[in-house]
Design a protein around this nucleic acid. Sequence first.
DNA 1: ATTAGCACTCGAACAAGGGGAGTGCTAATA
DNA 2: TATTAGCACTCCCCTTGTTCGAGTGCTAAT
Lengths: 346, 346
Amino acid sequence: MLDERKLKVLYAIINSYIISAEPIGSRTLSKHYDIGVSPATIRNEMSDLEELGLLNKPHSSAGRVPSDKAYRLYVDSLLNLNNISIDEEKKQKVKSILFSESQEVDQLLQTSARVLSEITNYTALVISPHLENSRIKHIQLLQVSSNQILLVIVNNSDIIKSTIFKVDSPTSSNQLNTISNFLNEKLNGLPLNKLKDVLNMGLLDELYEYKDLLNKVIPVLNESVYEAEDVELYYEGVARLLNYPEYKDINKAKTILSFIEDKDKVLEILLKENLGNEIQIVIGEENVYDQLKESSIVTATYSIDGKTIGKIGLLGPTRMDYYNLINTLRLFSVNISEILEMVFRK
Amino acid sequence: MLDERKLKVLYAIINSYIISAEPIGSRTLSKHYDIGVSPATIRNEMSDLEELGLLNKPHSSAGRVPSDKAYRLYVDSLLNLNNISIDEEKKQKVKSILFSESQEVDQLLQTSARVLSEITNYTALVISPHLENSRIKHIQLLQVSSNQILLVIVNNSDIIKSTIFKVDSPTSSNQLNTISNFLNEKLNGLPLNKLKDVLNMGLLDELYEYKDLLNKVIPVLNESVYEAEDVELYYEGVARLLNYPEYKDINKAKTILSFIEDKDKVLEILLKENLGNEIQIVIGEENVYDQLKESSIVTATYSIDGKTIGKIGLLGPTRMDYYNLINTLRLFSVNISEILEMVFRK
DNA sequence: ATTAGCACTCGAACAAGGGGAGTGCTAATA
DNA sequence: TATTAGCACTCCCCTTGTTCGAGTGCTAAT
């Protein structure tokens, strides 16, 4: 269907357009790209490519512009190239930057977003780990003052949730320990998403002498489930989009920026399954949301123990620099995963 | 210096310009505002006001536009009006919204920013409490697993900091309690900002049998100081700025949006002392940073026990709707303070 | 199959001109 | 003496017309 020369022409147009954002004509093409045939021949090829839906004309006497379908063809071939050879030197460079600014998980992700955006010049999107299968590892109640108790819950990723709550009557530390032990016995190893069921099924009845206190603890436990499921979104470099002529129209800029500010929608996109692909690319019209029909999103996963727990991504115009992007995202994906495993699983 | 009629003309121009963003001429002014004199007279007054530096002309045959100095005059008179009569009904309405979505402090602030921006149509900026004078209230070490220990620090605002760290040799819970008690004894009531000094002054020596463990604990304590001082910045409604003609030029939009993304600079502005004023307004050229010379920032404080601990603010073009803004910010200031006191000081 | 040649198309960029909202000045008015 | 009507003038904005050039598609020659 597409012979080598057609591909050559198509890729030349794509590469040119990614750089310049200008429609490109047959003459310019033959001058700057080594196609080996005359402009007239290129024109014929272009005409064929247009018929195939791979090129568009802004108007009848303008040059050609790649269609979303063309980008799809292009990125699929890039992804199939399987050039997973990560530049060790670059990798260490990025790693040391991320490492040096990351005392905590959220800082690591924030920094990643910032650096990713700086390097690529696109808007970076990062979500925090969602630990669907995290399990309760330790529960402890502590006396803080005469009528205040601290509840600490640790899960198997060592993410800690703690809350203080008031009690009406003072409780001895022995009592607290008894309850703590009881809770640990009952709940240790329990997946967080099962916690609600267990709580609903009359865990209370067994330790009815501490009923009042347990009644205080249970809402807090419930809440902690909720928060563990709560995924954070970090984004950086939103203003960078305004560098691209695609968003020079203020209404287009407003559309895309408003969309990015809608965290729920962005999260929805980033939480969608990657279907086993390390890198996922959604181009222009392929996007579900209308506001993104003229933009692309490239995402990569990061993981702990080989299990995907979060994503990083870049948002920009459909003519994104996919080639470099894919490599950069791979770099960050690997680095984030490694740092997470190394540092935060103590 | 400024007789009543001049003020009338000036305020009419300001009000008109705040709504329309268009220069206003003498004829339109006399038609739509009840000045009571002819356009010719208004022209004379305008000419005087221009000489006083209160009005500007975009070009010789255009209407007049208020200067920064005029806005300053205007907002100062607004602030002196002292119409601190807060609409109880509105207040409760906002309060119930904020309340319903705020399980945690950071959520409260995030929601506040969002709602504030929605109501006003400007970009909202909010910083988290900076608890300079927060004191250590409780410290506890806990066994999590055979070689992992959890350190919990509670301050007098009940903000909890907890970290897990590894130890080489298992430690008994008795030992941990001994150290916990020791640390509590030494550090209880200590202001966080004094902690570093105390740590540097050989706290170690007294309990040398646990030296190894203490050496692990101290960096964590140190870090906790750092984090307690770490102020978070939340912003919402950045894209809303693009609605204003002031930012319809893509370069101006880029300038202001890039600035907002620079959290350090924004924090610096928000952390500046309010000098006893509940509401602080910085107009156009009054701003330190060049990127803000065509914008204004209005901030209000929020507090616990009458002590200012954070700020909320709004950013927009110099012709902001100061009158409504001041009242809305007061509303949020009071509500945030009340919710903080009510809910989070358990 | 490829290419040179050519007529044609369309947008971008620039210039010219009319319309309109505004100004400042002067002289008349209360 | 303060106010106002009248008027000439200014300058931006918008529309219209024109040119210029990069690009196309078609046809005929190689």
